[in-house]
Design a protein around this nucleic acid. Sequence first.
DNA 1: TGTATAATATGACCCTGGTCATTTTTGTTC
DNA 2: GAACAAAAATGACCAGGGTCATATTATACA
Lengths: 205, 205
Amino acid sequence: MDSNLSRRERKKRETHRRLMGAALQLFREHGYDATTVEQIAEAADVAKGTFFNYFDTKEAILPALAEWRLRQLEDVLMPERGAPASPVARIKMALCLVAEDPLANPSLAGRLFAAIMPHRQEQDVHPGRALARLLADQVHQAQVAGEIRGDLDPLYVGGVIRTLFFQQLLIWHCGQCPGPLPDLLSGMVDLLLDGIAGPRWRQSS
Amino acid sequence: MDSNLSRRERKKRETHRRLMGAALQLFREHGYDATTVEQIAEAADVAKGTFFNYFDTKEAILPALAEWRLRQLEDVLMPERGAPASPVARIKMALCLVAEDPLANPSLAGRLFAAIMPHRQEQDVHPGRALARLLADQVHQAQVAGEIRGDLDPLYVGGVIRTLFFQQLLIWHCGQCPGPLPDLLSGMVDLLLDGIAGPRWRQSS
DNA sequence: TGTATAATATGACCCTGGTCATTTTTGTTC
DNA sequence: GAACAAAAATGACCAGGGTCATATTATACA
C-alpha cells in the first residue's frame, strides 16, 4: 500500500509516525508539561524545527495522537466483535474504553480537551473531532434502533456526549468523586437520556 | 468598609484590582495571546514579578476576572429585580447574559474554559467554579419549584450546564452554527431537560 | 548525468511565561 | 525614632515554545 507512494511521501509519513510514537511514550513517561518539544524531536531523531513542520504547536500533537488511538477502537465496537447489541450500551462501552487509554490520564486529558475545543477560529474541519464522530456514528445507530430521539443531529449529540465525557473524566480524576469511573460515565449517559426535568416541567412542557 | 483594614491590605487589594482591570482592558483590546504579562503589569504600574505574586500563572487571572464579572450578575437574577419567576427561565437568562460579556468573546472563552477545567490535581476549592455555583443555586430553586428532578446534586447539574454552555458558546462563535446564540443556549437547556431518549429506550428503561 | 525546482530539514534566534535572590516597604516593639 | 521582623515589590535571569533564513534532499526534465 505504501509502495505506490513516492519516497518523499513515505519518509514524511514515517517521520510523522516517529514523532507521534516518541511523543506518546514521553508523555506517558514524564507527563505533558515535563516533556519538551526538543526531547520529542530528539527521540524521533529530527531537529526541533522539523516538529513544527508536522504540528502547528506542541498541543496540536494531542488530537493527532487521540485520533490515532481511536482508530483501533472503531472495530472493537462492531457487534460482530462481541460488542453489545444495544447502541446505547456500545456508547457507554466506548467511553469506558477511551477512559482507560493512557491518553486519558490526568495530565493529558485536560490538555487534550483544551486542544480539542475550538479555541480560536478554526478554518477547515479540525482534527480531534474523531471521538465526536465515532460517538455520532453510534448515536445514529441508536436513533435507528429507537433508543435515541430521531429529531436530533447525531454529530451534535456526539459532541455533547464527548464534552460531558471529558468533564466527568477530569472531575473524577482530580476532584474527589465517589465510585468507579465506569459507573460515573454510565450515569452521565443515563442522565442525558432521561433528562433532568422534574414533574412540574414535564407537565407544563 | 476598607477603613478597618491595614494599609498593607488596602494596597494589596488595590493592586489586585488594578491588575485585573488592566488585564480585562488589554484582553478586550488585543486578545489574550497578544497581551503579555509585562504589558498587564506595566498598565497596572507594577513590575512583572509582582503579577506572579497575585496570580500563579497568566491563565489564572481569567477565573478571577470571571468571578469578578459574575458577582454583578447575581442580583440581576433575583425575581424581585424583574427576573422571570421560573427558575429554568432564569437559568437560560443567566446563560444569555454571560454570553454577552466581553469575557465570553471567542479569544477569551476558550482560554477561560480551559483554565476553569481542572487540568491537574487541584488541592483546595479552586476558583472559577463561580458560574457552576451560581447555576447550582438556580438549579436548587428549580428543584424546589419542581421544574428539575429533586434527586440530583445541584452542583453536579450546575457543572453540566456550565460545561455545555461553554461548548455551545465556542461552537457558535467559531464554528458555523445557525441561528442566534440565545436560541442555541435555550435549546441546549431544553435538550438537557427533556433528555435524548427515544421511544424504545423510554419503554425499556 | 546534469540542472532546475519544489519540498523538507535544520538550528540559531527571539519572545515571553515563570523563578528567585535581593531590595524596598510596612508594621511592631522598645 | 531606632532597630528588627515580616510582607511585598523588583527585575535579572532562565527555559522552552515557536519562527525563519538557509541548507539539504528529492523529483522532474533535458
